[in-house]
Design a protein around this nucleic acid. Structure first.
Lengths: 227, 227, 227, 227
DNA sequence: CATGAATGAGGTTTCATTCAT
DNA sequence: AATGAATGAAACCTCATTCAT
């Protein structure tokens, strides 16, 4: 997680109320940016949403660009924290590995398919060329971080003989891909809400395929695959 | 492919040169939109890129919004055509299924990881909330179309006993996810160029996992998976 | 005189009406800048004065700064032309040199003490640090130009034996100083209108002193002066 | 010298430190106004330059306008004092009048050509229309004051038979004009530094002309001049 | 049909100024 | 008395869009 206030303009003696207002502005900013996109969103609207005067926004966060960066950062950190908490649970998978993985998968999907997550993803995609540094920020603590955490679990499970992966990172990458790919496709880029059933369906399918591939020692098929 | 000229202003007897100019404008539009994003792009710049006066743009495509829609549509159709052509090749996989799938996967990745494709994807993500109809347009002939075409191939291969899928559409969805997920992650949302080697690596990994899951009859693992 | 349109943004095929509008904008700009000063003047007001929409101003002259520069330039050229025309008359001074010089001096003062001239001078003084290039523009064709023209006349008069100057340029500089210095002081930096009588008084005094110094061959006083 | 604290807000028993702070603010104000011009200068910057918080500026000097007025006043008084001190020296010119006048002229030029003087002059010129009262303030104790002081000296010298002026005020006005006119022209409105040599050159030339005009009894040239 | 010119609306940003501490 | 924070107003500039030519 990046320190929340990397680009803060406020001095070190910022009072309590000031921080509250800052947070309100950042929340409002994310809301409005999510709704309108970066270029369409106007600071006036953000200020209104935060119930603050326009210059106050500029006092706290110097730029529209800076405002954007910070809002994204906060949202990304939040999403990231949720993701990692879910993955943490895999440390003690219990007897039924498939059930545990499905549970994890479902919970990840719930994070991933939340409105805020979609909005974040859309904004990142939209502005990545104009804000390339956001990637460092978000991914340094982003998907990769979650992927690596998951890879850690998979490595442990492999050592415990319950999974058979030669490349845990790749396995984690693919596990996530099996979840997010279909979710993205079916939710129409996050435009359509996915029902709980739909999410469970995706998670179940992903875990089934994942375990067919990595749940047993590779046989001749694997032999064939590696040739 | 969607009818190219949904909202055209021109009469039915449009001359040859007129159509050329229209195409030039749409090309320019996609270029500029891709570079600047929808809201940032300005019609003046598009006109300049197309070497046309601004009102000419308005004569051919009534709106900035319409201009965007049409430009996206053309780009999406092109991408779509490429995708389908690649999938078509799987009809005759030859002896080595793994090699054939890897080849297909690699070619799909090449489409998917082209600059225009990334730009298209970014624009879609960015504007999907403000242009929801683009999804119908693009996906009616979009990822789903490719997914279904791939599902068709997988169904045939299953009938031929070379693949073992109970749900070919899901398999196709997952095949594509195993390709695009890692590509997206590693290329940083299309920001970083992926080398040919990187693409091959992704394709190989995807196909290996895919075949471990679907390349052989399911055993007790599968039984466990379905419970 | 500088070519009037040094920094023009308009293309070479500018139509008649366009030029008219450009001139109207420049006139309005000078009026407003003169009234409000550079920083205080707002483009909206200039546009209103020119009876044009604000963007039209930006179409013709790209910047507020550019607008200022061009407006100043036009005003300076005009003033310059008037000055030179007056000085030209000294070519044929007639019998009564003092009368001729006084006439020239009075006419120069009338130029110098016009509202536009004062405004120009105030704007130059005010903005010379922020627009240092204006000096090149205005003085390349500015006071110096007039000074030199006057020096030419004085040189001729010296050759004709009617004046006795060893350094005509210095004499011209001093002649002008004897006019403008008192005018500036008495008119309170151009704030107070100087009556025709007041102008005549200044001109008479300047010419009397000038002729006392340069109207006769230097005697022992000059010898003393040079020591 | 005008009473320094015309519009002071502070009570009569203001403490020592308070006055110091006030002075610091006024100094900072002049510095910033000189650098940026009145409209461009912002109070925040002045406060920063004075190492004070913005509201403190408002506590001491109620307005931006008032701040300007007071800053100008202080600067003008300072300049004025220097000028008068120089002129005072002419009371005992010594044997060599020309040397004495040249010395005085040079010293006046040094005052006149100092950075602060030019800045003051630029600010006055720039804002005289928006702060007409500054003229009363500055000139009541301004150029006129110096002119009159100089006129007093010239009157005495005339009585002593060393100068021949019928109108000492006009002579003083012209003496100053012969100094400042060329200085202004050559220094490009104070933009270019004038070297000590350049200043001496101007002073020498001015005094020579002045003495040619007023250093000896008028002859037929004078007769002609008055006709 | 294509274009140069014009416009109305709106966005980011800055600034002088005032509260509450 | 001095300061951090907040605000209303306004300025520069850009853009999508429409007339005449």
């Amino acid at each position: 997680m990046t320190g929340v206030t990397t680009t803060v303009a406020s001095g070190p003696r910022a009072s309590r109320g000031r921080i509250d207002k800052r947070q309100a502005i950042l929340d409002a900013a994310f809301t409005v940016f999510a709704r309108e996109g970066y270029a369409n969103a106007c600071v006036k609207e953000i200020a209104a949403e935060a119930k603050v005067a326009k210059p106050t926004v500029y006092n706290h966060l110097s730029d529209k660009a800076n405002l954007f960066r910070n809002a994204i950062e906060v949202a990304a950190d939040t999403a990231q924290t949720e993701n990692l908490a879910v993955i943490e649970q895999l440390t003690e998978p219990g007897d039924d590995l498939q059930a545990a993985l499905t549970d994890t998968g479902l919970k990840l999907l719930r994070c991933y398919a939340s409105d805020r997550s979609w909005a974040l993803r859309r904004l990142l995609y939209a502005e990545v060329t104009r804000f390339p540094d956001l990637l460092e920020t978000v991914r340094g603590s982003g998907t990769n971080r979650a992927t690596e955490a998951l890879a850690d679990r998979f490595a442990r499970l492999t050592l415990g003989g319950r999974l058979h992966t030669t490349d845990p990172t790749q396995a984690a990458e693919q596990f996530i891909a099996l979840l997010t790919g279909p979710a993205e496709a079916r939710s129409k880029f996050g435009t359509a809400q996915l029902s709980e059933d739909a999410l469970r369906d995706i998670a179940t399918g992903a875990v089934r395929t994942f375990l067919m591939a990595f749940g047993r020692a590779s046989t001749e098929a694997e032999g064939a695959a590696t040739r």
